[in-house]
Amino acid sequence: MSFNLRDWGANLWANANKWQRYVIAGFIVVGAFSLPLLEGTFFNTPSTPFVSVLFYPIGVYVLMALGLNVVVGKSGLLDLGYVAFYAVGAYTAGILSMHTKLNTWEILPIGIALAMLSGLVLGAAVLRLRGDYLAIVTLGFGEIIRITALNTKSVGGANGITNIPNPPTTLGFKFDLDHPRNYYWAVLILIMITILIVRALSIRRPGRAWEAIRQDEDVAELMGVNTYKYKLWAFIFGASVGGAGGVLFASKAMFIAPNIFTYNISILILAFVVFGGMGNIWGVVFGAVVLSYIPEKIRFISNARMLLFGLVLIIMMNLRPDGLLPRKKREKIGVAGGKSK
């Protein structure tokens, strides 16, 4: 392909001076915040109001895909139990709102902290394993969390937790069923913070360490990268984003149950990352937006969406393993020579 959108975007950014960069970033931010204006146009979704779709699935999934991207895309650690952190966040919101008077914004940091803690515990235990074992152990962890929630009476068992309060009115923005736009803006702010953090980490030491680990873990270790430590940090960072997604989801849906947090969610998020381009922030955002929007827009796909995502995984891996918007060429130098084991 002669025209590469990823390189075009990267060059545009690289060749821009400080003020041009502010203008580009401003356009992106304003554009993202004004997406609810598309309500009532061609983009309308048939069964759910468009602005609600912008929050869930699109916004929440973009956020989680960004978190998983750090784990799978940047560091090459295949996590098939990412839903566990989403569940930890959501259940934190559910349990704390049941027993305390904390509001959503106060619960959010607690949810993130608990998700990070579970990421730390799981990661510390399993990150010494080889890559392909990691996939199946994380999958098992996701199931353990779900089945534990299912069999624990104090968190509602199979019925889950109901009547989780919406976030309080903040700075004049109301959060209830009539104001889905404010939820979208809230998740958008979280997405932007996540993007800024991931970008900042990527160009600094952690980003270089992740890249080295992804390309060849043994060599990275030999070159003095503390691979265990950086893998653990990637894991914890991914967990924190998943937890944030869970808290937000619970406060909007007002209801959570174990059957929401299945293995399918982990696969869904993985498909977003793989489709857009592993390791590339904008590719992942693009992948998550497109793949979570299509089943909402075209209803008959909705039932077949997991089938669609399975096909996406096979086709992308066979034809375009770097995704639709692959990471920058500069970062791929090591892969070209990566034929040998």
């Binding site: 799978v72 090459g76 295949l78 098939l80 890559g131 392909d132 996939a135 696969i267 993985l270 793989v274 997991m306 089938l307 995502f309 399975g310 096909l311 996406v312 995984l313 096979i314 086709i315 891996m317 066979n318 393993p321 990566g338 034929k339 040998s340 084991k341």
Partner: peptide, 15 residues
């Protein structure tokens, strides 16, 4: 020889 690629493809088939 990237094992991640084959593994993801395998998961796709399973789904």
């Amino acid at each position: 020889s990237n094992r991640l690629t084959s593994l993801i493809s395998a998961i796709g088939v399973s789904i």
